[in-house]
Design a protein around this nucleic acid. Structure first.
Lengths: 268, 268
DNA sequence: TAGTGGTCTAGACCACCTC
DNA sequence: AGGTGGTCTAGACCACTAC
């Protein structure tokens, strides 16, 4: 389970690493030193094979290591490239601020404000509650829930998926939740207008490598984890919704303000 | 950069995957279905090689995929094992609650309450501010800062590292920050007693694959991302500290309560 | 000592991109 | 057509763990 520890030999100043690690270490050093900052392409496998006096397969092992670290990417027919990032910052403590309710498309507003072009596909489903949702909504596992699902893009790059589950009892009170179209005024306002007010949230944030399905939906390359954000919304009585957002970890960051900052943290 | 999309052939019902992916897909299905739930060991490479009629190297490619997804681990001489997790949940909105100041070792308390054995190593350093710290503390890049660094273990498993930086101007006012030992009453209380009160925090949460250095410190296997938590603490005037916590992503989850939940979210 | 995974090689053929 | 990475093989030898 644990990575191999560097071994020390009495006849060598430093530990003896396998050749493919030497390749990876050398290239990693060059990358962080900015050796490929213009034309971000790396030398081809055969060039590296000659340079390191290693077989093509050994060089490939070293490159695979850097890919799995998220440092570089590869494309068939094109070569290897140093990865570059632009991170989108989401202020989760403001996102649906209790004192400043949005109309539900904070995402569109935020992305447009950042000078980017948002785009999303949307669908509504009725399905039995999965375990992690049933727990949070405090309903029976497998009981009926409505899922409102969003697949979000920024400038046509897949950015995140968002799945919001509503419990059956709430649907009976507020049937428009189960209708396929958008809710113009936003689900939060629609619910509030029907006397169901969200007075608080519980957020859980975790990370892991994507499932093959997630990697497909978000077009994630190897070496990129997902950031999982699970928000459970509560009325005065009980949980009323559970939203699971899956972010590409290389493109997103979540922020929270706690206490009275009054805009003092605007630098980030 | 993007993962290969499944291809569809007119003469086959489903897309033709490379053999190593078929191996990975078959084993992944068996793993999630619980086929290895007792004795979590997988068959050996040579057994799988026979079963899938593939060379040992091809089987290894498939297994490597599962390792990089964080599903299994491998150890020389032992074999492959299904990974199992236990997640530690940290309530960040309560961690240093403004209305309920701790004595600085919330970590020790939380871990002990969970019936686990905490352990940490600690050191203090004086060093020039790295870029991401200088920005957040609003000091010159490279200006003097004090780093208080913690390496934390739970039951002797490396859990997280925590680096807190204090700006030079604060050290002059509160010199004990630069002293090597623990501060008994906690740094927050020490600072408050000297008239420097933290009135709010700005938290940033991100994820990525670990650097080799992080993988070494936290003894992380392949296929496990880190969860990065950067907390900048503010007094009424300006930033007074910046804490960067690096978690093993497979062992930790962060929680926030927003609004008035009054313990309604105790299920998680 | 036997069995496990870890490293490395040499070579074949395929799929994709650019020209 | 020529260069790039992607897949696959067969085999050699090493390092670690168990018995």
């Amino acid at each position: 389970m644990y990575q191999q520890v560097a071994r020390v030999r009495h006849d060598e100043p430093m530990s003896k690493q396998p050749k493919y690690r030497q390749v990876a270490d050398a290239l990693r050093r060059e990358i962080v030193n900015g050796a490929f900052d213009h034309d971000r392409r790396l030398p081809s496998e055969s060039e590296l094979s000659a340079r390191f006096e290693a077989s093509r397969n050994t060089v490939r092992s070293g490159l695979a290591l850097l890919v799995s670290e998220g440092l570089i990417t590869s494309s068939q027919g094109l070569g290897y490239e140093v990865r570059s990032h632009e991170v989108f910052k989401l202020n989760a403590s403001r996102f649906e601020n209790l004192n400043f309710p949005h109309n539900g498309d904070a995402y569109n507003t935020d992305v447009t404000n950042a000078g980017r072009r948002p785009h999303q596909t949307f669908r509504v489903e009725m399905l039995p509650a999965p375990e992690e949702v049933a727990e949070r909504l405090r309903v029976e596992l497998g009981s009926k829930t409505v899922l409102r699902f969003c697949h979000r893009y920024v400038d046509d790059v897949p950015w995140s998926t968002q799945a919001t589950y509503y419990p059956a009892w709430l649907i009976e009170e507020s049937p428009r939740l189960a209708e396929p179209g958008d809710i113009e005024e936003g689900t939060t306002r629609y619910l509030a207008a029907r006397g169901v007010e969200q007075i608080g949230y519980f957020d859980e944030i975790a990370t892991r490598m994507p499932t093959p399905e997630e990697a497909r939906l978000l077009e994630m390359g190897a070496g990129v984890p997902v950031l999982l954000w699970t928000r459970t919304g509560y009325s005065a009585d009980r949980p009323i919704r559970c939203t699971i957002t899956t972010f590409r970890g290389d493109l997103n960051q979540m922020n929270y303000e706690i206490g009275d900052l009054a805009g003092r943290s605007e630098n980030t």
